[in-house]
């Protein structure tokens, strides 16, 4: 046997990473598309998801419950942030960035004070190995990819098939016109911000049996999301998925031969390439960038 096994493993891991990253990035992209703001504490919502999962699994013993509770709790926190801070600064893009940087530090330090500086493990809710002929692959990882895909599909359906989704798309197109047509823009903002945060938290829950919960894990997720939305183009679900797969596979395969650090350097350099060739991202429609 040569290098086929590690490469296949790398590709599979890459797809799993890609699906979770797509889920996280989708939340960021959604919030930007609708509210025109960048939430720098998005990675901390992801981290909170992982931390809450650890608490729920450890004290209540149910992973499924964690997958429900963490997004709800983080969504609730996001709602509070949106109602108090973001509303007060009138969603000004730069003020939002400063405020959410502040929030990033605050959340991180609160978690450090309560959860401690340790990386804690959560065991996967189910064990089985998928037999791929010459080697086995973690059934949980396959499960993560599948659940992420289901959640992404659910978001897609929400946006394109429901009344709320229609409101969201209308707000994304033109806030003022949407308001004139009776779209409750304020509510759409609150819901979108909470939904974006909840998606990040769900991704955090899903990743925790693979990567452990750690109070500094948010920044990496944030940067990965940034890379994905820049490469894929903001506001495009398809772009987010494709970019996440490119970045994830690059990460998976390069990590087999070199270090994960190098793969992150390479995927960041991909950003430089995209900006030079297509400043709006691969699938970006937008006037925005």
């Amino acid at each position: 046997m040569g290098i086929e096994v590690p490469i296949t493993l790398g590709i599979l891991d890459g797809v799993v990473v890609a699906m979770v990253a797509a889920l996280t990035a989708l939340g960021l992209s959604l919030v930007f598309g609708i509210m025109r703001i960048v939430n720098v504490s998005h990675g901390e919502f992801y981290m909170l998801g992982a931390i809450i999962a650890w608490f729920v699994v450890t004290y209540l013993g149910s992973f499924l419950l964690a997958l429900v509770l963490a997004p709800l709790a983080v969504g609730g926190l996001a709602t509070a942030v949106e109602r108090t801070i973001l509303k007060k600064i009138r969603y000004d893009p730069e003020s939002t960035i400063v405020a959410t940087i502040g929030l990033l530090y605050a959340i991180q330090q609160v978690v450090l004070a309560t959860f401690g500086p340790y990386a804690r493990e959560v065991s996967p809710p189910f064990y089985f190995r998928v037999d791929l002929g010459f080697f086995g692959y973690s059934g949980y990882k396959v499960g993560v990819a599948v659940i992420s895909a289901i959640l992404i599909a659910a978001v897609y359906l929400l946006i394109y098939k429901t009344r709320l989704g229609l409101f969201m798309r209308a707000t994304q197109q033109d806030t003022e016109i949407a308001q004139a047509f009776g779209v409750p823009v304020r509510k759409v903002y609150t819901v979108s911000f909470a939904l974006g945060a909840a998606l990040a938290a769900a991704a955090g829950v899903l990743i925790v049996p693979i990567q452990q919960a750690y109070y500094l894990m948010g920044l990496d997720a944030l940067l990965l999301s940034f890379i994905i939305v820049i490469v894929g183009g903001l506001g495009s679900i398809k772009g987010t998925l494709v970019a996440a797969l490119i970045v994830g596979l690059l990460d998976g395969v390069v990590s087999v031969f070199f270090s994960p650090t190098l793969s992150r350097i390479l995927s960041s350099l991909l950003v430089a390439g995209v900006i030079l060739v297509r400043p709006r991202g691969l699938f970006g429609s937008g006037k925005t960038m």
Binding site: P93, I230, V271, I275, L276
Partner: peptide, 20 residues
């Protein structure tokens, strides 16, 4: 490179390069 973008994108891209 980064000034080819504007607004929040400028901020994101400078952050990514700095992280590199």
């Amino acid at each position: 490179i980064t000034l080819r973008t504007s607004g929040v994108f400028f901020l994101i891209v400078t952050m990514i390069f700095s992280q590199v």
